[in-house]
Simulated scan of single mutants.
Amino acid sequence: MTPPVGINAGHFFRGVPAGFADTVRRIEDLGFDGLWFAEAYGSDVFTPLAYAAALTSRIRLGTAVAQIPARTPAATATTATTLDHLSGGRVVLGLGASGPQVSEGWHGVAYPRPLARTREYVDVVRQVLAREQPLDHDGEFHQLPLRGGTGLGKPLRSSLHVLRPDLPIQLGAEGPRNIALAAEIADGWHAMFFSPAFDDFYRTALEEGFARRGGRPEHFEVVCTLPVVVDTDIERAADRIRPDLALYMGGMGARGANFHHDVFVRMGHAETAARVQDLYLRGEKAAAAAAVPTSLVEEIALIGPVGKIREDLARWSGTVVDSLAVQGLPEDLEIVAKALL
Rank of each mutant, 00 (worst) to 15 (best):
L83R: 06
L61F: 00
W36Y: 13
G94I: 04
L95W: 06
G88Y: 01
T79P: 00
I59P: 01
S43T: 03
A52W: 00
V92G: 02
S57L: 11
A66I: 06
D84R: 12
P69K: 02
V45E: 05
A74F: 12
S98E: 02
F46V: 13
A40P: 11
L95N: 04
A80M: 10
D84V: 14
A74N: 06
T72L: 05
T81Y: 11
L30H: 09
L30W: 11
V65F: 06
T79N: 04
S57A: 13
S98G: 06
G31L: 08
I59A: 06
S98M: 03
A97L: 10
L61Q: 07
G31T: 12
S57I: 14
E39N: 03
A75S: 11
P73Q: 08
S87W: 00
V65Q: 01
G31K: 12
L86W: 02
T56F: 10
P73A: 01
A53I: 15
L30Y: 09
A74T: 02
A53V: 14
T63A: 04
A40R: 14
A38Y: 10
A97R: 09
A70E: 03
T56G: 09
A54E: 10
T47L: 11
L30N: 08
S43C: 13
L35D: 13
R58S: 06
G96Y: 04
L83W: 00
F37P: 00
D33Q: 10
W36G: 09
T79H: 03
W36S: 13
S98K: 05
L55P: 14
G62K: 05
A74Q: 11
R60K: 12
T82D: 12
E39Y: 01
A54S: 14
A80C: 12
T82N: 12
L86T: 04
T81K: 13
I59H: 09
V65P: 04
G89P: 08
A75I: 14
G42S: 12
A40K: 09
L30D: 07
A97N: 09
T72P: 00
A53L: 09
P69M: 11
E39D: 00
L95M: 09
S87R: 12
V91Q: 00
D84Q: 11
L93I: 11
W36F: 15
I68N: 15
R90Q: 07
L30I: 10
F37L: 11
T63I: 10
I59C: 03
A54C: 07
T78R: 15
T47D: 01
D44E: 15
A66N: 07
A50H: 06
L83C: 06
A54R: 14
F32H: 03
T81M: 15
D44C: 15
Y51C: 10
S87Y: 04
L93S: 04
V45K: 06
D29M: 13
H85I: 02
G31S: 10
L30E: 10
D44S: 15
R90Y: 08
F37R: 08
G89V: 14
H85E: 01
L93A: 03
